[in-house]
Design a binder for these strands. Sequence first.
DNA 1: ATTATAATTGCAACCGGATTGCAAGTAACT
DNA 2: AGTTACTTGCAATCCGGTTGCAATTATAAT
Lengths: 145, 145
Amino acid sequence: MNGTETDTAWAKQALRDVTLRATAARVAVLKLLASKGVPMSHSEVVESLAEFGFDQSTLFRCLNEMAHAGLLSRLDLGDHTRRFELKKSSDEAEFTHAHFMCVDCGELQCMDDYSLQITPSRGPRRNNLGTITEIMIRGHCGQCN
Amino acid sequence: MNGTETDTAWAKQALRDVTLRATAARVAVLKLLASKGVPMSHSEVVESLAEFGFDQSTLFRCLNEMAHAGLLSRLDLGDHTRRFELKKSSDEAEFTHAHFMCVDCGELQCMDDYSLQITPSRGPRRNNLGTITEIMIRGHCGQCN
DNA sequence: ATTATAATTGCAACCGGATTGCAAGTAACT
DNA sequence: AGTTACTTGCAATCCGGTTGCAATTATAAT
């Protein structure tokens, strides 16, 4: 939140903590995602970091590597575009919060401030649900009616 | 379920009911989706109807037109592939049931037998949620652990 | 500080799903 | 049967995602 210096140091350390080399591209991605609160798509990241001239494939690989390493989470929100967000260091849990996307305007919203309950109702349960990694809710947002 | 004749007649009528011309491609798509119970992707439809030689763009447009006309529903289940399923004439409701997709094996499951509750928790609510059209839950299914 | 080495990058190309312009073909009304 | 607006087929394009490979570079060892 303060100087770029500190942010950079933090990013480098975060990378080394998961045995990834602290390269310029990865540091930049990490700082970018840390500064924005919202999940970003590959192309949004490419555009946001255009000034540095990283290749799109580099950023693509960075995003996936960092997600695989547990630094980011990969979201498939149902609009055919994968998004990445900084994973809160606190939780190792698979699932944190649901996301809401407006099918009209495309606006994306983290539903931190809602709680979800999933309960089996009557009838024979078919398959065990296993572990949940992501909950995606789509609909028309308040603005779009 | 019985003769092709009857199915064809039904399909043609269903199309005319929503003021779409009853063309060979549309009839074939409608009969296909009616025969299968599962949502199908564009490419699956193309492949299933390969014997008739419809162009992929034709089928693409048919699917979207029929979805737009209310005959089919379009699903974005988070695997970057749009699927279409015959809409049950009964429900006009926006949202019916959630879907669960295993991120490992890709298996798709309709969660008819679960109930969901979404409740705002503490803190200032940001945007109004509006109406929900689709709830998608992803994770590891029982089999895949 | 220099070197060795394995990880990473940039480039260029490719893939599949989605989408479109346009000329030729056809369903449906008269 | 004739007219006309709607559909189709074709070819091309767009975009997100993905890869092989040679050049580059972060890190560990010297």
